[in-house]
Write a protein that binds this DNA or RNA. Structure first.
Lengths: 125, 125
DNA sequence: CCTAAATCTACACTCAACGTCAGGTTTAGG
DNA sequence: CCTAAACCTGACGTTGAGTGTAGATTTAGG
């Protein structure tokens, strides 16, 4: 698959893929002859994973630090202790975020109920 | 309280507070005489709320759209239907995010366990 | 009263994460 | 064989969220 199809399927622009490539986030499986990039399915899965991690608020740099965990053979991971530290830091962050998100959701639901009441009252008047 | 104390207590720079003011996120309680900004405790609470919403991934624009819900008298909120739409969209987003975050946390825990095993093995060898 | 610390405005700069544009090459289909 | 569509690189532009700096003013403490 070429970059056009990949970008369509992943829902990102080809320039974004180029950019991610420079950051080491995705690499084409092949680059023969004229220099066209050819990708396999794992590239798509990587882009989807990147999108998911972005939604959680990770920067592209942070993503670069962990993305290989999802795709590389476990035994091939270098600097395991370092990676472990990153993961544990992220876990702590994730827990805090879960807590905040739950609170936020609760507040939202309260506010929505409040808004509904106000709107109904305003209409009745 | 002046901007220096506020920025210290909120853990943001005074430049950031100026910036937030331009976006309508915080306003000084008073601006008498020489133009110095004087804040009350609610300003601090607003800054803390802003930080919390940022941690959830809201942009400053999105925050501007809802921050008043937390501080303004409910009956004073203009454009209630609009606000309701924003809130409901955010609730949907929050639910999706909760789900993703839970998955992410689960993956993290698995990966941490995996790293631990690999490190232990490497040491024993 | 005087000076150092705090504050003011305004403009410029940074950084991440892209998008746009220009000019050139390559490939697939009629 | 030819041309439109897809691709390439490189340079520059943009947006969001600030940070830095300069020059002027103000205020508080000795």
């Amino acid at each position: 698959m070429q970059i056009g199809e990949l970008s369509d399927r992943a829902g990102v622009s080809h320039r974004t893929i180029h950019y991610y490539e420079r950051l080491g986030l995705v690499q084409p499986a092949e680059r023969e002859g004229a220099g066209y990039r050819y990708y396999d399915e794992t590239a798509l899965r990587r882009l989807e994973k990147i999108a998911a991690l972005k939604r959680l608020g990770l920067s592209l740099d942070e993503i670069a630090a962990v993305i290989d965990l999802y795709f590389e053979d476990a035994s091939g991971i270098r600097g395991k202790v370092k990676v472990l530290e990153i993961l544990e830091a992220q876990l702590t962050k994730a827990n805090a975020q879960l807590h905040e998100l739950a609170t936020f959701k609760h507040d939202l639901e309260n506010n929505i109920a409040r808004m509904r009441t106000l709107i109904t009252e305003a209409k009745r008047k």
